[in-house]
């Protein structure tokens, strides 16, 4: 049985309305993906909001220049609000899962 980690970090700022939406979107997409999959693999999932004001050095080191930005497994993947499809594809790509269209 393999074990993967999925860490989704939503870089956000105070009064950033889109940031809250990005967090909700990430949770929704992960739920819709039905993770962990029924392949017997164990996946640890972590979705968190990172305040760029409180963790400025980390945000800048990752390449964050605006919010919301989304990093998956410490790699900056989105520099603005993604679509649900784009986020799903990015997560699937990270976990090497086949593309699953929402039914």
């Amino acid at each position: 049985m393999s074990e993967y980690d999925l860490k989704i970090e939503i870089f956000s700022a105070p009064c950033c309305n889109q940031c809250d939406k990005a967090f909700v979107l990430a949770e929704k997409v992960v739920n819709e993906l039905g993770l962990p999959p029924s392949t017997g693999q164990s996946i640890t999932i972590d979705i968190r909001k990172i305040s760029v004001v409180e963790e400025l050095d980390y945000a800048v080191a990752l390449g964050v220049l605006a919010t919301p930005s989304i990093a998956i497994n410490s790699e900056l993947v989105f520099t603005s609000m993604p679509t649900a499809k784009a986020l799903r594809l990015a997560i699937q790509s990270q976990l090497a899962l086949p593309d699953q269209e929402k039914t």
Binding site: A13, P14, C15, C16, Q18, S51, V52, V53, E54, L56, A59, V60, G63, V64, L65, A66, T67
Partner: peptide, 24 residues
């Protein structure tokens, strides 16, 4: 430059108050 770019972009996106000053 990247730090200030990020902070400037935050202020532009904020309707009320400046998150930079509030954060500080």
């Amino acid at each position: 430059r990247n730090e200030l770019t990020l902070l400037v972009n935050l202020c532009l996106g904020s309707d009320g108050g400046c998150p930079i000053i509030e954060g500080i």
